[in-house]
């Protein structure tokens, strides 16, 4: 049975942990207040001959390293490179929530956008056209209610297909101001030469422009670690 690693990302209080518990059956109490997941949780799920390891990332508003939680979530997506990242959004506050989805889409294309709390949204008279949204974002969008257990099959089915590589994604790219875009264009090839294809060059270039020291340090640590490993195996990356 093949094993896939799935990361769950999302804003605090989007019901991400409820979904995690539902999928993995792990008993973990989830309350309705921001910042509940303080400890990174991992669980397992089997579906259609596939074994999945689910990682519940800390709930964050952003992945731009303003806090330790955000660093954990960012490092996981960029360095551990999960096979699929499920971004859980709160249907009742889609606009604020979607920023995180766009940030994740800049880092990886293997993304399923999962709109949770769809029952709450319905009650509040909020309608979301998920097909249109999927076209705009360029990745699959699934509407669910984790607490009412609706839409879960569709989510698992989408997950299964994405794991099989049957879904071609074409993630949306945020267009920045001309000034920033010019600089990205200038940096992108340099980034590619410096770090190779292991990381999304456009995203790294943005982090550099932003002066994100935390990411730089994480990357350097990572590179040193990799080089040491290579050296031990008797290969030299330098020549």
């Amino acid at each position: 049975m093949s094993n896939f690693r799935i990361a769950l990302a999302g804003n605090p209080n989007t019901g991400k942990s409820t979904l995690f518990n539902l999928l993995t059956g792990l008993r973990q109490h989830t309350g309705n207040w921001p910042g509940k997941t303080v400890i990174h949780a991992e669980g397992a799920l089997d579906y259609k001959e596939k074994h999945y390891t689910l990682i519940d990332l800390p709930g964050t508003y952003s992945l731009y390293s303003n806090s330790a939680d955000e660093e954990v979530a960012r490092d996981h997506i960029i360095f551990e490179r999960p096979d699929v990242t499920i971004v859980v959004l709160d249907a009742t506050a889609l606009e604020r929530n979607m920023n995180l989805a766009l940030q994740v889409l800049e880092m990886t294309s293997q993304v399923i956008v999962c709109i949770n709390l769809i029952d709450e949204a319905k009650k509040k008279g909020i309608e979301i056209n998920e097909r249109k949204l999927a076209r705009k974002l360029g990745v699959p969008v699934v509407k669910i209610s984790a607490r009412n257990k609706t839409g879960i099959n569709e989510l698992l089915e989408t997950l299964d297909q994405m794991a099989d590589g049957k879904i071609a994604t074409n993630p949306i790219q945020v267009t920045y101001s001309n000034d920033i875009e010019e600089k990205i264009a200038q940096l992108e090839p340099l980034v590619q030469r410096a770090v190779g294809d292991a990381f999304p060059a456009r995203w790294v270039a943005l982090r550099l422009l932003d002066g994100d020291k935390s990411f730089l340090n994480a990357l350097k640590k990572r590179q040193n670690g990799v080089q040491k490993e290579v050296a031990v195996h008797g290969y030299s990356a330098c020549h």
Binding site: I126, I128, N129, K136
Partner: peptide, 10 residues
């Protein structure tokens, strides 16, 4: 994006 895909009825 949201302007296009989210509709508030109430």
């Amino acid at each position: 994006i949201c302007k296009d895909v989210v509709h508030y009825s109430n």
